[in-house]
Design a protein around this nucleic acid. Structure first.
Lengths: 112, 112
DNA sequence: TGGAGAGATCGACGGATATCGATGGGATGC
DNA sequence: GCATCCCATCGATATCCGTCGATCTCTCCA
């Protein structure tokens, strides 16, 4: 098999063309950061597989984490536009965001 | 449209079933963390779109970052199994890993 | 009206991480 | 041999982030 390393001269380094627009990079990085946590990724996995909204208290009961920590993770996911909340009485029900762009959806499909 | 919040009684919270295996979550989180950085994501984007390996010195010329920092980011990508390096003389040529599992490939397709 | 449960916010703390300058190490060429 | 170029590693530093306890708000119900 070939390993076609390009020709090159010493002292000459030219920056390659950047295929990704800067705004899109930042947007993707925000999304990746929101998902790059075990707790949050599992939460998204549960929500993606659930037909009904899930009460946040059930998540608090799942993970060995305090209630403020779960709430903090949910805020991160909300802020990233990944989940939506419906308050009903005492409870807060979370579901995957209904309007997700195609790239985000493809990314979730690749993960979950 | 309906918002079918499930029935619920006070003081009763039951953990939902976790659809994602723990090992897989950790694996995905490692991958996501490796990509959740603007510099690294752009590097991966360039490598994914390039038919030839790219010299790391070209990346050093691209980003307004020091040479050790670029090397550090490359080490992260190497450690995550995303890129491979070929040393030729003075230079180090990087390319996207040739053997990427389907999920990782789908994730990159969704991003880049 | 008051108590209790659920959830969000705040402030603080510790560990992870991005960045840099300095250094080391290997290859090239004079 | 020696200078030069490229790259990786090391040590230090500043910032970010996950976690917790304490507290606040809101709702429900007796």
């Amino acid at each position: 098999m070939k390993s076609p390393v390009p020709e090159r001269v010493k002292g000459v380094c030219s920056p390659p063309s950047m295929p990704l627009a800067l705004a899109r990079v930042d947007q993707s990085v925000d999304l990746l950061k929101a998902l790059a946590d075990p707790t949050r990724l599992q939460i998204v996995g549960v929500l993606k597989g659930s037909s009904q909204p899930v009460c946040i208290c059930d998540f608090t009961a799942s993970f060995a984490l305090s209630q403020p920590t779960i709430s903090h993770h949910m805020a991160k996911l909300r802020n990233a536009g990944l989940v939506e909340v419906t308050k009903a009485g005492i409870w807060a029900y979370y579901r995957l965001a209904t309007r997700l762009d195609a790239r985000t959806r493809a990314l979730l499909d690749a993960l979950v």
